[in-house]
Amino acid sequence: MTRPMLAALAALGLALAANAPRAHAEPPAAPADQMRLQGIWQLVGEHSTIKTVDGRLPPFKPAAKARYEAAVAARRAGKPIGDTAQKCLPPGLPRAMFYPQPVLITVEPKQVTFLHELMHLHRMVYIGDALPSNDDLDQNWLGFSAGRWEKGDLIVQSRGFNDVTTIDTAGIPHSTDLLLTEKLHLADKDTLVDTITIDDPKTFAAPWQTRVTFKRLPDTTEFREYVCTDVNPEAVAAK
């Protein structure tokens, strides 16, 4: 028997052994302080116009400021522009977090998942993943989210966004360079605070922060079936 054949047989044996039935190691459940994030949450207050944590407009660059002001004026005139959600396309991030429909957050060791009633969107946060560069990501509506736990807070970084969504309903624009960093902190067991840092050097002169709060709803809360294209036939016709 030749040496290559022996090596091949040995490797085949190893491959078969790796697939043989064996004792199965259970993945550990997420620790209790992380499991506190699991539940059904609802945004507190109305957040169609997002401001910084100091209550100001974001530090727009001039072209972005002009786009924002045009969007605000168009909405005031009753003819909003550039609002993908009106066409039943996903609102993107962070805007999906600014809706009143409840969100079920599930916590697993390697994945935290946001199951939104809104448009039945699901947003996956992969725990322990390194955040890929934009070159390695598709441009998606909800981007790609990588998370890590820091003393019971969930830190989520997201990028890989398309540039057709806006940051809020009013019309804060962004580019495909948008990088979001969220800190999800439980102020108490029923109060979730999401502090969001918005970094997009093509749109803003500096990174800026905004903050929203969610209240826990009873675990027995049930979602309605949210079908944007069915309740809003005009949006479908306008496609």
């Binding site: 490797a11 190893l14 199965h24």
Partner: peptide
């Protein structure tokens, strides 16, 4: 030749078991 044969054997073994070769596993 040995390296190629070994790689082929590993691939065949995994295919026989129905698994994609050299895939990243996100779960057990």
């Amino acid at each position: 030749a040995a390296r190629i044969s070994a790689a082929l054997a590993v691939t065949l073994g995994m295919l026989a078991a129905g698994a994609a070769p050299a895939a990243t596993l996100y779960r057990p």
